[in-house]
Simulated assay, not measured.
Amino acid sequence: MSLMRIQKPKTRKGKVALLEREPKVIENIKNVLILEGRKVSVTVKELLKDICTFKKPNCKTLSRNNDITPFEDQNPLEILAKKSDCHLFIFGSHSKKRPDNIVMGRVYDDQILDMIEFGVKQYKALKDFKNEKIDVNCKPCLVFNGDQWSKSEELRRIKSLFVDMFHVEDVESIRLQGIEHVISFTLTEDLTIMIRSYKILLKKSGLQTPRIELTEIGPSIDFSIRRTKIASKDLYKLAHKKPAELKVTKKKNVSRDALGNVNARVHIDKQVINKLQLRKMKGLKKTAEEKKTARQLKKAASKEN
């Protein structure tokens, strides 16, 4: 196993680059490494190119062919992902045994966490759809159709992998006009994954809410599941562990209503009003007659005792 040599940064720019790669409380957007095997078909080349179009600028493409077999030896792939600072990868290859082959996976702690191999059953490229496309870096709306996604642990991991692959960034709010792109994932009974891409068109409806129409913009892909290599439950749980700073701690006696207003309950000790220290004002001072009466009552009480 070959290890990458670790060098100390000699410039300020190099130090900043290394700090960007270190773990953070709020992680950066995951980059995707797109690379080709020693032999690639035209279909796989076009598919990788279309995925790169959707993932720009959060993707890195290697131009030369790579003699890599991920399921036999994953070490070269892990080294390339570490050098490129990518936590996701898509590897395309073609052979007589596995034609039009796509391998998708993700990396955790510089090691491959999950890896799924797909076969391309049907593909229609982005350029074959002669209509208006979406803008670059547009946040897609991911829709998963079918009740098969939760039938097994492998299918749940594939769904999670697609979310990681096509997710851009977390946002607290978004305007209606900002939702322009929909990616649909449909899982059929024979475990064929149908991926379709649509552009959202907002039409006038005569009401405050517009009428929505979908126009397919491509690409159109049908995947068959070939081989899978998923992480153990313990490693998968460790990879999804949230830092303590991001965990929401419940505060005692503090609650929120439906409108988001904060309601708090404060507990205080019982107050003795007679012993409160008030400001010494002339109007609050006892008169001479009140002082005399108080002294007489005090003397009478002492005689009785």
Rank of each mutant, 00 (worst) to 15 (best):
Q208N: 08
T209C: 06
T209S: 03
T209R: 10
T209F: 07
P210H: 04
P210V: 04
R211P: 00
R211D: 14
R211N: 11
I212S: 04
I212E: 04
I212R: 05
I212C: 01
I212M: 06
E213A: 13
E213M: 13
L214F: 15
L214R: 11
I217Q: 10
I217R: 15
I217M: 14
I217P: 10
G218N: 01
G218T: 07
P219R: 04
S220D: 14
I221W: 09
I221M: 07
D222C: 09
D222L: 00
D222V: 00
F223N: 01
F223S: 00
S224D: 02
S224A: 08
I225K: 04
I225A: 04
I225Q: 03
R226E: 10
R226V: 11
R226S: 06
R226G: 05
R226Q: 11
R226Y: 08
R227P: 00
R227V: 03
T228L: 13
K229E: 07
K229C: 14
K229L: 15
K229S: 14
I230W: 05
I230H: 09
I230A: 06
I230P: 04
A231D: 04
A231G: 05
A231Q: 12
K233Q: 03
D234C: 02
D234T: 04
D234H: 01
L235A: 10
Y236K: 12
Y236M: 09
K237R: 11
K237A: 13
K237T: 07
K237E: 07
K237D: 12
K237L: 13
L238T: 07
L238N: 11
L238H: 10
A239K: 08
H240D: 12
H240K: 13
K241P: 01
K241Y: 03
A244T: 11
E245N: 10
L246F: 00
L246N: 02
L246Q: 06
K247T: 04
K247W: 00
K247A: 00
K247G: 00
V248N: 09
T249R: 11
T249F: 11
T249N: 13
K251W: 03
K251A: 07
K251E: 09
K252E: 14
K252A: 12
K252R: 13
V254T: 06
V254F: 09
V254H: 05
V254E: 10
S255H: 08
S255W: 08
R256T: 02
R256P: 00
D257F: 01
D257H: 07
A258N: 08
A258R: 01
A258T: 03
L259T: 06
L259D: 11
N261V: 08
N261C: 10
N261I: 07
N261Q: 13
N261W: 12
V262Q: 03
V262R: 12
N263P: 03
N263D: 01
A264W: 02
A264Q: 02
A264V: 08
R265W: 04
V266D: 00
V266T: 03
V266S: 04
V266F: 07
H267Q: 14
H267K: 15
I268L: 15
I268Q: 05
I268S: 10
